[in-house]
Design a binder for these strands. Structure first.
Lengths: 336, 336
DNA sequence: TACGGATGTGTGAACGTGCACACAGTAGGA
DNA sequence: TCCTACTGTGTGCACGTTCACACATCCGTA
């Protein structure tokens, strides 16, 4: 369907009896007489004129839009409420700066290519990238393009020139594992997930660090995703490997919730027989029975800061190299 | 930051020793000799040329992009996993047709205005609108613009000319309420939510319909959102109003989960003392204890169908008036 | 030989915008 | 009176692309 003919500055100019230039000045600022302005504004209102973004973008080389790229979000959208908070945080910050956030979802190879084209093609001035995986092709596209960008979390092979905001997964994981130790747990296992993402690797590293020499690789269950189902499977595996297990660090709250289910199945009490801790402090944490002790992840702030990193680059400010890590307080509830 | 100078068709043409027209033909099809094609493709690869979308859109009056507008998604993103599934379904369908889905989030009045400008400005060829409320200004913008669109769910004041896809909330709600009656429940209440959305109103209507003369307005708790916290509060209210209540229809699974919590608090067993049913068949349903009996909502398909409705309009096909309703099987589990 | 079709290439115009520039009028000060 | 500064307006050009058109070549056939 060809869109019907829409009004342009020419039409407005003709209707108001002035030239294109004057209309442009009303829209973008400049010297305009009161009568001319009134006539033009009336004409704009009458025909419902809206400037053509494509033309404006072409001329200005600025679209006032920033992409929010969610990579492989399948499990994220369905199980991890964090991405929603990150998105809303980013949107709020961009909105304040009068930029439009446009979210792009990358689920398939087909998506990757199309989104790369979209990012390259000048429809957006910058990009916020969430949950990139190691060697993700999108990373190459962005750095090759020199598109102002910010990552939420950092894949290990991220170029130094792209700023990121994240949390210190290693020390957060280490801290909550230590709390388990201090609480008197002796046989502590971990349900590790998403080991192809920085967050997954780092949480495992933190776990190892905290346990030191008492770390036992047999007590790590490696599951693909941060979701409930993975938690159930991971916990069953751990119980099988060592029935005497009395503490579990789950790589996410959703996993912890799944672990609780598997423990209930096996007739273990929480926190009596087994102490369970999670990660994220998502809505899962408070809806579990018992409520989860977990690491609070400042999801909304992550989005806000990432947006600001992009906005500052757009303003031409120099952004410091490397990343920014936000604090992650431990929230101690009932599950351990 | 001014983006650095990017390669254009002119540069490619010069590098390959041909004219702009020939480059365009390589990109868009047409008669090109093998040598010319090879030279141009080599040049494109070498400088990493990517066509400028803004220019293409301006000339073609087509952006190959479709907006996915999520209205007031705060609670949706955080508590209701449906929106994620709808999004992924829509993205898959659009991706197949080589269209880019761009999600726009509307949370504030500021957002409304900016998104309206974005939709009007030619950056997208069409729009999918999710969870519009009555008299939402976005509706007026879209119908005023004649932008090809499809709604997921239909606000009562939606113009007839805009197609929608949804579920029959009335008969679904009625059906599951009837199941409660058939199961022998006598004092049945409802936790009704979001009565400013079509879905909220219709679910309440269905509930009333099923109960007929035995409907008691005192047994309806009216809460603002489809979320867990509202469920807890709503259930407490119902227990207070009638301690003898033995059945509850919750307007969403999240609400039902909250209701279970409030019932546990009050020392009632489910389904022994009180039967609880939800709506959505979201991830909440299976993670509750006991698992929820609920109405399955085909979220992914809603997204797919909405995308197809937009795509068909873009192809110039006539789309039938009115809406399309997808089936909603009842999933009977343990909570009632 | 002359013609028509298929193949291949270059050129000009247009999409709708913003900005630089030119120009006109007015007012104030030297 | 002339110069300058300020206000207000119109015109031409460029952004990078696609498309219609003109033109050129080659081949088979009437």
């Amino acid at each position: 369907m060809r869109p019907q003919k829409r009004a342009t500055v020419h039409d407005i100019a003709a209707a108001a009896g002035v030239s294109r230039g004057t209309v442009s000045r009303v829209l973008n600022g400049g010297y305009v007489s009161a009568e001319a302005r009134a006539a033009i504004e009336a004409a704009i209102l009458e025909v419902g004129y809206v400037p053509n973004n494509a033309a404006r973008t072409l001329k200005m080389r600025r679209s006032q839009a920033v992409a929010f790229v969610a990579l492989e979000p399948h499990s994220l959208f369905l199980d991890d409420p964090n991405i929603g908070s990150i998105m809303l945080g980013a949107n709020a910050a961009l909105s304040l700066a009068d930029h439009q956030m446009v979210s792009l979802v990358v689920e398939s190879a087909r998506d990757t290519e199309r989104v790369a084209r979209y990012l390259s093609g000048g429809f957006v001035d910058g990009a916020i990238v969430v949950s990139a995986r190691t060697r993700d092709p999108i990373i190459k596209v962005i750095s090759g393009l020199g598109l102002p960008a910010a990552f939420v979390g950092h894949p290990p092979d991220l170029s130094d020139s792209i700023p990121f905001v994240g949390i210190d997964n290693i020390s957060s994981a280490s801290a909550i594992t230590s709390r388990l130790v201090e609480a008197g747990r002796r046989r502590i296992g971990m349900i590790a997930a998403a080991l192809d993402r920085d967050s997954g690797i780092d949480r495992l590293t933190g776990f190892k660090t905290a346990l030191g020499t008492s770390f036992d690789a047999a007590l790590v269950a490696d599951v693909p995703h941060y979701d409930y189902g993975s938690g159930v499977k991971g916990m069953r595996l751990l119980l099988e490997r060592d029935p005497a297990i009395d503490g579990v660090f789950a790589a996410s709250d959703a996993i912890a919730a799944g672990a609780l289910e598997a423990l209930r199945e096996a007739g273990r009490s929480v926190p009596g027989d087994v102490g369970v801790v999670g990660f994220d402090d998502s809505t899962w944490a408070v809806r579990c029975q018992p409520q989860l002790s977990t690491v609070h992840q400042p999801a909304k702030e992550l989005g806000t800061v990432a947006a600001q990193l992009v906005l500052r680059q757009l303003r031409g400010e120099q952004v410091e190299q490397g990343g920014q890590l936000l604090p992650t307080p431990i929230v101690w509830r009932d599950s351990a």
